[in-house]
Design a protein around this nucleic acid. Structure first.
Length: 340
DNA sequence: CCCCGAGCTACATATGTCAC
DNA sequence: GTGACATATGTAGCTCGGGG
């Protein structure tokens, strides 16, 4: 069995100490006043032998892994994957790597993932938490591990977070639909106690109440399949034929909802107006184009990584909690416009 | 007193060794 | 067979020695 090259091999081959090699590889040659000759010889040999420091050993010594985990609901969702992409890029620039994983909104799976990350000495946690993991997050906080939540909060647990103004987002959407002459506006959402879902519902209700309209709300199960969602939405709309506009609380409910409208042969926007949450590429390309509530993905990502790095590098200075709430933008397209 | 760099140790965990 | 103790792993950070 071939043994992996270690820093010791480099040192022995050049007849210098391990420490010297370590200094040079960590960019401290100047600071430690190591001669240019030695520095060069080390770098050359490292290159020749293609030596790579053992990250496990390194993290054993330093207690740092230079890895941040990003736990999202579902990495295949375009919203989360584009957040992930931006975070990865920002982290990479700072010498950090990202590990993604999907919680699937399951507390048991999330718990196991957090446990695994702790055992692997992961430096920081960026999490969009499912319900039921308050204790786990709390224990991370107690151990002074850098944690930032995003997309949703855990009620009664003070943490760093980056969010959007969910209630304002749906409120503005209702306002726009009313402006376009819609009067029977339905809200299709998840049966969920997650804060972002509660807030989106609240914004809807506020808008409806202010306009003195009748609320139409459908709550579907998160765990239901694609087909089940399509059926539930179609059934709901068949039952409430007077509905003339639909606001969807997530991007996947919107795509499934559009499919439901197609099965019912309802035309957008003449029969029914549509607004989706999140600005997916699909909504720009679909005919008619779909009006969408866009989250500031780039800014959210930037903030997230900024906060986590600040906690990471800033030592243990008991810096206060960072609470960021960003505005959304309603991107008006054809699906919500008034009919002449 | 400075410069260069060698030597030692902590870190977490698994496996080995030895006395009983 | 069991429990106690020793050793090995790769690295970074600190201390300090030796030569000038």
């Amino acid at each position: 069995m071939k043994k992996r090259l270690s820093i010791r091999d480099i040192a022995q081959q050049l007849n210098i100490s391990i420490t010297t090699v370590s200094f040079i590889l960590n960019g401290k040659a100047k600071e430690k006043r190591i001669s240019e000759q030695v520095t060069e010889r080390v770098l050359k040999l490292v290159e020749e032998l293609d030596y790579k420091p053992n990250q496990i050993a390194r993290s054993l010594r330093t207690g740092k892994s230079k890895i941040i985990c990003l736990m999202v609901e579902n990495i295949s969702n375009e919203f989360f994957s584009s957040i992930a992409r931006h975070i990865e890029e920002n982290a990479f620039e700072q010498g950090y790597k990202i590990i993604y994983c999907s919680t699937e909104n399951k507390p048991e799976k999330t718990r196991e993932l957090i446990k695994m990350f702790r055992e692997r000495n992961i430096d920081g946690y960026i999490i969009s938490p499912p319900e039921g993991i308050k204790e786990d997050i709390q224990s991370l906080l107690e151990d002074k591990l850098p944690v930032v939540l995003f997309d949703r909060l855990i009620p009664d647990l003070p943490t760093n977070f980056v969010m959007i103004d969910n209630s304002d987002a749906t409120y503005k959407a209702i306002h726009h639909l009313v402006e376009q002459g819609r009067q029977k506006i339905a809200f299709i959402t998840l049966d969920s106690r997650q804060t972002q879902m509660k807030d989106r519902l609240e914004g809807y209700k506020k808008g409806i109440k202010e306009q003195d309209l009748k609320p139409y709300v459908l709550k579907v199960n998160y765990t239901d399949s694609y087909a089940q969602h399509v059926t539930s939405i179609a059934t709901f709309l068949k039952k409430h034929k007077e509905v003339d506009a639909v606001l969807f609380s997530t991007n996947y409910l919107a795509t499934r909802g559009i499919e439901a409208l197609n099965t019912l042969n309802l035309k957008i926007p003449s029969d029914i107006g549509v607004i989706a949450f999140d600005d997916l590429d699909f909504f720009k390309l679909y005919q008619p184009t779909i009006t969408a509530i866009a989250q500031p993905v780039e800014e959210m990502s930037k903030k997230l990584i900024e906060i986590i790095l600040k906690k990471l590098e800033g030592g243990r200075e008991e810096s206060d909690q960072e609470e960021v709430v960003l505005p959304t933008q309603l991107i008006v397209r054809n699906s919500s416009l008034a009919q002449k």
